[in-house]
Design a protein around this nucleic acid. Structure first.
Length: 483
RNA sequence: GGCCCCUUCGUCUAGCGGUCAGGACGUAGCCCUCUCACGGCUAAAACACGGGUUCGAUUCCCGUAGGGGUCACCA
């Protein structure tokens, strides 16, 4: 059964690679789901195959159009849209029922008239006696039909002897005794399919060759195999990738903060290429490589190097990566993204011009927007506490001198400004920092900013002079204070 | 609890019988410097534990401990 083929064993090897991402619409694209999608996408791309999408919306209560839209939105943002229009599982219930009937006809399944209440009772009893509960329906070997009109479910007639083995591409060989696999439900009493049936039928009809999904489905794979074998359908190769945990090692949940990729985009100001790279490196590695482009990822990705142990989500590392991608990002694009966050009309051209010196100082779009504030807000900026403290009388007097000197300059280029201020510093016997800091405070309202000459140039002559004047104390001011 | 899976620096990982156990994030220090960043350099930091197998185990096997997953007419 084991195969030397890099794409995995089983009957899958002769068919063209088809993977699929099959989320259930829960309101957003889960960060773990995004990685699963990524792995499926990469695997298909790497092998020149197809990557499909299927929305598991058979749970009507939980599925809303908004939730479905949110998932598509997240996938598109990450560049992980399907190669074909998504399949909606709910639309295929007739097909699912048809297969259930086939299974019934072939004797691989049976009608079970046990009610949910009866089952609950038996479960409770088993619980009380502290023995494992396994459904053992008396209808399994009774070929009679129940009384007409009584509701029934269709259960698989699962083998009880022997064991089932999966050669998982990630987990390796995993064997489970068939005694562990019960006669699970295929078709509910209302005629709708369960997940177990729907997955098998849809994967088959979509010609899926490689099922790459979360570790939490490993146990399901054994059940799905039972159906597959009863049907005599080809078995896909399985790859169960470990889950992503929160920073504390526990399963990722709401209390860990952002769960949906939309939150990383909207709230945390993360770029899609950064999340792509981060998710790729979570659970998968390629030597010492950290910064990996899409193209490179497609070339390098292999299931064999997916780790077997769960990994923890580390926001700091994501942000570091994001900082890297922001520095590489196009200035116009960043200006546009920042303008979007700020929400009101801004000078896009100015923002774009400022971007080279702004973006090296930010690791997400929020910080980028904050850093751009002094440029965007009109007029002299309000002083923060540190800036206020910095602007002593002495410093303000210095600003007066600077203003005087700068006012005489018409050139207003970075080079000229630098020469002028360094000259002044020398004349006064001061370090450049002594001039730059008060200047920075007056110009930006903060004690940190891009290089002071860049700030001066970006703000322009008129605005710069006005801001300096607003904080400067003239010689006359000082004189009047002495009196 | 039954079954299944996992275990290399704090975190993500490289390693696939013999390595000074490598890289990255984070942390600390230094350099660069008008501030903050960027960048560069340096440092501290790991093979969970116990048995085997072997000339030799981080690497292979078995236990222990810890962590995770799963046990629906949910997906």
């Amino acid at each position: 059964m084991a195969s030397a083929d890099a794409t995995g064993g089983g009957a899958a090897e002769s068919r063209p690679v088809v993977t699929r991402f099959a989320p259930s619409p829960t309101g957003y694209l889960h960060i773990g789901g995004a990685r699963t999608a990524l792995f499926n996408w990469l695997f298909a791309r790497h092998h020149g195959g197809k990557y499909l999408l299927r929305i598991e919306d058979t749970d009507r209560a939980r599925s809303t159009d908004a939730a479905i839209a949110a998932i598509h939105d997240g996938l598109e943002w990450l560049g992980l849209g399907g190669d074909e229009p998504a399949v909606y599982q709910f639309a295929r219930t007739a097909r699912h029922a048809e297969i259930a009937q086939m299974l019934l006809d072939s004797g691989h399944a049976y009608r079970c008239y046990l009610t949910p209440e009866e089952l609950a009772e038996r479960r409770a009893l088993a619980q009380a006696e502290r023995r494992p509960f396994r459904i053992d329906s008396e209808w399994r070997d009774c070929h009679a039909q129940g009384p007409a009109g009584t509701p029934f479910v269709i259960r698989i007639r699962a083998p009880r002897e022997g064991e089932t083995v999966i050669d998982d591409l990630v987990q390796g060989r995993v064997a489970v005794s068939n005694a562990e696999i019960d006669d699970f439900v295929l078709l509910r009493s209302d005629g709708t399919p369960t997940y177990m049936l729907a997955v098998v039928v849809d994967d088959h009809d979509m010609a899926v060759t490689h099922v790459i999904r979360g570790d939490d489905h490993l146990n399901n794979a054994f059940r799905q195999l039972v159906i597959l074998r009863a049907l005599g359908w080809p078995e896909p190769a399985y790859a169960h990738v470990p889950l992503i945990h929160g920073a504390d090692g526990a399963k990722l949940s709401k209390r860990h903060g952002a769960l949906g990729v939309d939150a990383y985009r909207d709230d945390l100001g993360i770029l899609p290429e950064a999340l792509f790279n981060y998710l790729l490196r979570l659970g998968w590695g390629h030597g010492d490589d950290e910064i990996i482009s899409r193209e490179q990822a497609i070339q390098w990705f292999d299931i064999a190097h997916v780790g077997k142990s769960p990994s923890r989500f580390d926001l700091a590392k994501l942000q570091n990566l994001n900082g890297h991608y922001m520095r590489e990002a196009d200035d116009g694009r960043l200006a546009h993204l920042v303008a979007q966050r700020i929400g009101y009309d801004v000078d896009l051209m100015l923002l774009e011009r400022a971007m080279p010196v702004l973006k090296v100082r930010a690791k997400d779009l929020n910080e980028l927007a904050t850093g751009a504030r002094f440029l965007i807000a009109p007029g002299p900026p309000p002083l923060d506490a540190k800036a206020e403290a910095l602007l002593s009388d002495e410093a303000r007097a210095l600003l007066g001198t600077i203003h005087e000197r700068l006012e005489a300059r018409v050139d207003w280029t970075s080079e000229d400004l630098e020469a002028t201020l360094k000259e002044l510093a020398e004349e006064l016997g001061l370090g450049l920092g002594k001039l730059a800091q008060p200047l920075r405070a007056a110009l930006t309202g903060q004690t940190t900013s891009p290089g002071i000459f860049d700030v001066l140039v970006l703000l322009g002559r008129g605005e710069s002079l006005a801001r300096i004047a607003a904080q400067a104390r003239t010689a006359a001011d000082l004189d009047s204070m002495k009196e």
